[in-house]
């Protein structure tokens, strides 16, 4: 989604400005890192502690605004919003990370294999990518949800399916560039096998790009998971997810606006964190992209 780098190729160089610029250009990395660090820590904390059990109903205390009951108020069943958001963080992050990991693994495998084999294998692999890519992710997720039943597993599969062509394309084109280098061709000429070359030369050279891409795709995965939950295609209740909290909040917009604001804020901050982290990492790890 945010696959476009902010180019910053300084021309006029002055020492103070350079320092400032470097500080600022590292800014995204720091801000993103801090955001993700914080949300990740909250998510992990939720595994051992939340202010209240997130499923605990106190119907008499329903729809209480923030600070009136608990830190962030209660929902329509009197559940503690802060606790639900914390567990929601874990659910969102764990689904996103697993989905991206699976998508990155499968996509990279496909991409480097296509670059190594070329010919008909590449043609078929890339055609399969096109097929997956052609169906908008929300539609394929809807169908998968109907096929497998909704839940954590379905969400992970649905998101990772869409990640495969993204990673396959990125790694295939990067791997092809590596393959075209003289020393790789020399190694090939010396009788080194495709798998060997992929492991020795291709993967190390494209690792940074994979990491950068994965970070950015994590943001997209969070957004997709939220969208699926919003449509009721995410994890099962009572497991709290940010997307379903938003869906539930829809009918209470007038009476309890915080229910609609807080989960969206959590989603936005997480995605912002991943995107900034991704940008920062790209500047750090992938100078070629930066100088483009």
């Amino acid at each position: 989604m945010s696959g476009v780098p902010p180019p910053s190729a300084p021309r006029r160089v002055r020492p103070v400005a350079t320092a400032l610029r470097q500080g600022l250009s590292r800014g995204p990395l720091w801000i993103g890192g801090l955001l993700i660090g914080f949300i990740g820590a909250v998510a992990l904390l939720s595994l051992v502690w939340t202010p209240l059990p997130p499923g605990k109903l106190q119907i008499v205390q329903k729809l209480k605004p923030p600070l009136a009951q608990g830190l962030l108020g209660t929902d329509h069943l009197g559940r503690d919003v802060a606790s639900m958001l914390m567990v929601g963080a874990w659910n969102s992050l764990s689904i996103a990370v697993l989905a991206v990991a699976m998508g990155a693994f499968a996509g990279t495998l496909l991409g480097v294999a296509a670059a190594a084999r070329r010919g008909w294998f590449e043609a078929i692999a890339m055609r399969a990518n096109d097929v997956i890519f052609a169906v908008p992710p929300i539609l394929s997720a809807m169908m998968l949800g109907a096929l497998l039943g909704t839940g954590r597993f379905t969400a992970i599969i649905a998101i990772s399916v869409f990640m495969v062509p993204v990673f396959a394309r990125v790694t295939a084109s990067a791997a092809r560039q590596v393959w075209s280098r003289d020393y790789v061709q020399a190694a090939r000429g010396a009788g080194k096998g495709g798998i060997r070359i992929t492991i020795d030369h291709v993967l190390p050279n494209i690792a940074n790009q994979i990491i950068v891409q994965a970070t950015i795709q994590l943001g997209l995965a969070i957004l997709t998971e939220a969208g699926l939950s919003f449509l009721g295609l995410g994890m099962a209740p009572p497991a709290p997810t940010w997307g379903r909290m938003l869906a539930d909040a829809q009918t209470y917009l007038g009476r309890a606006p915080w229910l609609a604001i807080l989960p969206g804020l959590a989603i936005a901050l997480t995605v912002l964190g991943f995107n900034m982290l991704g940008d920062g990492l790209r500047d750090l790890l992938d100078p070629r992209e930066r100088s483009r």
Partner: peptide
Amino acid sequence: FIAVPGFWVGLL
């Protein structure tokens, strides 16, 4: 802009 989900913007 990139980070906010469109459907949330809609709700707001």
